[in-house]
Amino acid sequence: MDFNVIIDNLPFLMKGLFTSFQLAFFTIVLSLSLACLIAIGRISNKKYVRYPSAIFVNLLRSNPLILIVFWFFFLVPLITGRPLPAFGSVLIAFVVFFSAYFAEIVRSGIQSVGSMQIKAAQSTGLTYPQTMRLIILPQALKNMLPALVTECVIVFQGTTIAYIIGMREFLHSTSLVAERTIRPIELYLFAALVYLIICFTGTRIATLLEKKE
């Protein structure tokens, strides 16, 4: 084995890693915002809000991410009339897909607080928005933080799927170098190690947050 091949190609590989981080970052920020809306829809007492939200969540959660990516890759140009850059299509597919998962986390976070807290807050004269902002959301956030961090790790792992449609993220860069240099052992093991370090850090943080309870 010769690990010089990694050092020689490090700038190229790191560029790929940066793309992976970018994709993960934008996915998390955008899908989490969308998820909050869906979660509120899921617990709404209005049927015409609750049912569509539930259908959206269950539809996406019963399909594999890669298939959702294929769907959007096919549908987006059809709707817009012109092809979108790979990053754009993938990002849209990721945001839609992961918003369903984040929505379930946010929903169970809100529901974990318990309705007596709402009643207690309202008994002291707080309005509904005040109750949500000052009493329910801070507690919900604390309850769902470990699950949120774990989901972020899953998003990061999921960015490898962009490889399949040719986006030059970290796994794709790795495979390109592996093919060019004919050194698959070194390169794939290196990629595995990098993913391991990043994701292990993430899951450790999630475990520590859980223990803090």
């Binding site: 792992q157 799927i161 796994l171 495979s175 592996a178 698959p184 052992i185 391991l196 994701c199």
Partner: peptide, 23 residues
């Protein structure tokens, strides 16, 4: 547990497919 859940599945598949036979 830490090794197998923290490396993305796709990377693991590639390792089994491209690397494992070579070893």
């Amino acid at each position: 547990v830490e090794i197998f859940r923290n490396i993305p599945l796709l990377v693991q598949l590639f390792i089994w497919f491209f690397v494992f036979p070579l070893l």
